[in-house]
Nucleic acid binder design. Structure first.
Lengths: 230, 230
DNA sequence: TAATGTGAAAGGCTTCACAGCC
DNA sequence: GGCTGTGAAGCCTTTCACATTA
């Protein structure tokens, strides 16, 4: 069985024509941990004390102390027993783990209600991202300015982004158009997509998609309401 | 060890001053399954064939056939071996499980960019919800109309919603104001909250909160980008 | 003393594999 | 022959408990 927790340098078996060799994987961080690191970072951004304990961080960001410690153990940082973690150092470690050493460019496709709201969302800039493009198909939207960002024609996508392989593409168009936009992004060299359309995207394995479905969140809450009152 | 999958009527042990009794829990659906049921429903809404197989549904909504079958087994529906599931019946079963037999009311607090976008999002109405209130603190927003919904003063929250215990409250205000809005909702009788502010809410156990953090999704994508190129 | 770091145990979810049924 | 229903196995995640260390 594969070890998942424990030593920080994990190993993983790979089959290869019957033989097996072991390949060293550094800092293979579990996906559940990555999601929490994001919350820890958001907390640490407004922490003023010079150090925090795992219990303090858990109280601010959610979870419990043991989980915080296990999560942080993947970073290679080491806290100080009896004291806690040095705030500034931990902040930097998490930023590094999340690939935020430099500001990461984001483009938004779709300048409708949602796309416009995202373009103007102050939380993105505050947390390591820069909206460096807002694109739309509709000619009457092209040329207007939304939340300080100029709306460009979707055909200019390729020209506007110097290195799409390090950027994130956000899909904020109706479900019917989502796959076409995904294909466009992938064709332009994007490898990370955040999809707000309630549609399953088909993409090659080299491309990562995350799906945010607002109605789905309401469905889940609705289910629990029904369970309790029934 | 507790049985989780298998027979549809689960039992659960409850400690009670040393004695243990077994209490029948019908249709205790795992949270991961509930999230997928939402996607299945979205697919089924646009399915035209009179029946679907688990593999077909998996292809449309994501996942694999075995998972679809296991998920649907919690509903108590039974498909037809050799054929599949009857589309209309399945759709109704899932709606029932998600508490969508009647249209579920939703109120949005915060009529800024995000709140306005949500109020105008056609996906909500299409998938079983009605936006029946949009509230804001700012007096210059009150009285205006956003996406066909009138913005009301937040003080009128209690009057506007007949039965808050069956409704869902959506928080779309800045992080600093989120806890105050949550307290307001809970005081008014809400028991389900969808929170878009990147802030940890403290609520009594009777209230369920779901958190959608847009920047967090970008963090996760950013992490994977960094892992691959580094 | 007060906290971290981490094996081990427990819990929950997904996948497998196949019996059962239409 | 095709597809469902479901134990069992395996994997991933969380929690526990405690040795360890500043």
């Amino acid at each position: 069985m594969r070890r998942l927790y424990g030593p920080r340098h994990h190993t993983r078996n790979r089959g290869s024509f019957g033989t097996r060799y072991r390949c060293r994987v550094e800092h293979q961080i579990p996906t559940a941990t990555v999601a929490r690191l994001s919350r820890y970072l958001t907390s640490l951004e407004v922490t003023t004390t010079s150090s925090v304990s795992s219990d303090e961080l858990a109280a601010k960001a959610g979870g419990n102390g043991a989980q915080v410690r296990k999560d942080l153990s993947f970073l290679g940082t080491t806290g100080t027993r009896g004291v806690g973690y040095e705030t500034a150092a931990l902040r930097n470690e998490i930023r590094r783990a999340l690939g935020l050493e430099a500001v990461r460019p984001v483009v938004i496709i779709g300048a409708g209600h949602l796309g416009s709201a995202l373009a103007g969302y102050p939380g993105f800039a505050r947390r390591g991202f820069r909206i460096c493009g807002l694109f739309d198909q509709a000619h009457d939207r092209v040329g207007t300015t939304v939340a300080g960002v100029r709306v460009s024609d979707i055909d200019q996508l390729t020209d506007a982004i110097p290195d799409p392989a390090t950027a994130i593409g956000v899909i904020a168009v109706p479900a019917e158009a989502a796959q076409a936009v995904a294909d466009l992004l992938i064709g332009a060299g994007f490898r990370s997509i955040l999809n707000f359309a309630p549609a399953l995207l088909t993409v090659p394995p080299s491309v990562e998609v995350r799906q945010v479905d607002l109605a789905s969140e309401l469905h889940i809450l609705s289910h629990h309401l029904a369970r309790r009152s029934g």
